[in-house]
Amino acid sequence: MANQNRKKAITTKEDWESLNYPKHGKKTLVVYFSQLNPIGRECHAKVKEEVVTEASKLVGEEVDIDIAKLDEFLVDIYGKDKMEVKFYRNQKASEIENRLVKLAKNGWEYEAFFFVFLTYLDDEKQSGVRIQAYDKAIHLDFLFNPIKNAPSMALKPKIFLIQADDIGMLYPTHVEKAIPDHIEVKKIPTDADRLVILSTIPQKLTPLADKERDKEKGKQTPENDSDSHQNIRAGPVQSVVPRFDTSVLIRAFLTVMNNDDYRGENLLSNSTRILGEVCNIVEPLQNTTDYDNYDIPLPLVTSTLTKLYFL
């Protein structure tokens, strides 16, 4: 009991009244859940890349490129001593639930949390947003419920980045509208101290948008364009975005968060800039005949953060 009281005493009166989420020198927990293919299908697989950041726990792993680039950024922000990484690939729904329950019990060890889900949108007509686990589709509240009432995570920022590729968006002339009937924004829970950024723009739209951008400039993209591995820390957000084939969401996130003008801003304020960068990335596609009657949906941002969170 004494140990439990010691843990709870971490939240002081000063912390409670602070305008920012407090930092006590503890680690930030980063958890990656990666689904590399749609259920039962080999096509539309995620682009993979080997992690080469020596300080990363994932160095040498071949992972979804979204993880490789996001991990590079977070290692740069926190360093290996201030970040703990957990990586889970192709997890069944029950495995995801069990891991989240376990993490919730051990939340005392951390001061902030990033939960990154890289998967696919379920294509069945169901109520609410459903994403794919390895064996079946799950509602978003399946991800939130195991941790929303965890005392160990209370009053701490919990950031959810959810990239759920909507494969139907690759075939805009075959559907009637961009946002499927089964995506109901009101179904996303709104528990405290949480920021959720959810994108359904499929990863494969990123290189398609780049090709259209090059066409607009009157040039053809070389197969081995040196810009394809451009350093994401090079310069401010601008109309020419860094070239790496992550999802649009992760590219926009990294482009904004690596901008020296915005890196010191709180994450909620930067979320509006991230949405603006998404618009910039997909704009060339939106001007094509395939997408002229199809509005590519912006990522959904929902926040119940009670304080300002700075990375």
Rank of each mutant, 00 (worst) to 15 (best):
residue 3 N to A: 13
residue 7 K to G: 13
residue 10 I to C: 14
residue 10 I to Y: 12
residue 14 E to Q: 13
residue 14 E to A: 14
residue 15 D to Q: 13
residue 17 E to W: 12
residue 19 L to I: 15
residue 25 G to Y: 07
residue 26 K to V: 03
residue 27 K to A: 08
residue 28 T to P: 10
residue 31 V to W: 05
residue 34 S to M: 12
residue 34 S to L: 11
residue 41 R to D: 06
residue 43 C to G: 13
residue 44 H to D: 03
residue 45 A to F: 09
residue 45 A to K: 09
residue 50 E to Y: 08
residue 53 T to P: 10
residue 53 T to M: 12
residue 58 L to W: 01
residue 60 G to R: 02
residue 60 G to I: 05
residue 68 A to I: 03
residue 71 D to H: 08
residue 74 L to K: 09
residue 78 Y to K: 02
residue 79 G to V: 04
residue 79 G to W: 04
residue 81 D to S: 10
residue 86 K to V: 00
residue 88 Y to I: 00
residue 89 R to P: 00
residue 89 R to G: 00
residue 90 N to W: 07
residue 91 Q to P: 02
residue 97 E to A: 09
residue 103 L to Y: 13
residue 105 K to P: 06
residue 107 G to H: 09
residue 107 G to W: 10
residue 109 E to V: 14
residue 109 E to D: 15
residue 112 A to N: 11
residue 114 F to L: 09
residue 115 F to P: 04
residue 120 Y to L: 06
residue 121 L to S: 08
residue 124 E to K: 09
residue 128 G to W: 01
residue 132 Q to D: 15
residue 133 A to Y: 08
residue 134 Y to K: 11
residue 136 K to N: 04
residue 144 F to Q: 15
residue 146 P to E: 07
residue 146 P to F: 04
residue 154 A to Y: 08
residue 156 K to R: 06
residue 158 K to S: 01
residue 159 I to S: 03
residue 160 F to N: 03
residue 162 I to M: 01
residue 162 I to Y: 02
residue 167 I to R: 02
residue 168 G to F: 03
residue 168 G to Q: 05
residue 169 M to V: 04
residue 174 H to W: 11
residue 176 E to Y: 03
residue 179 I to Q: 05
residue 183 I to N: 04
residue 187 K to N: 15
residue 190 T to C: 12
residue 194 R to M: 12
residue 195 L to Q: 02
residue 202 P to L: 05
residue 205 L to P: 06
residue 207 P to L: 06
residue 208 L to M: 15
residue 216 E to A: 14
residue 220 Q to F: 00
residue 222 P to A: 02
residue 227 D to E: 12
residue 227 D to S: 11
residue 231 N to W: 01
residue 231 N to V: 08
residue 233 R to M: 06
residue 239 S to C: 08
residue 243 R to I: 00
residue 246 T to E: 03
residue 246 T to C: 04
residue 249 L to Y: 05
residue 250 I to E: 05
residue 251 R to Q: 07
residue 253 F to H: 04
residue 255 T to F: 11
residue 256 V to D: 05
residue 256 V to W: 04
residue 260 D to W: 03
residue 261 D to N: 05
residue 264 G to C: 02
residue 267 L to H: 06
residue 268 L to N: 02
residue 269 S to G: 09
residue 275 L to D: 01
residue 276 G to W: 02
residue 276 G to F: 02
residue 281 I to L: 05
residue 282 V to C: 07
residue 283 E to R: 13
residue 286 Q to G: 12
residue 286 Q to N: 09
residue 288 T to V: 10
residue 288 T to G: 00
residue 290 D to M: 15
residue 291 Y to P: 09
residue 299 P to N: 13
residue 309 Y to A: 09
residue 311 L to Q: 13
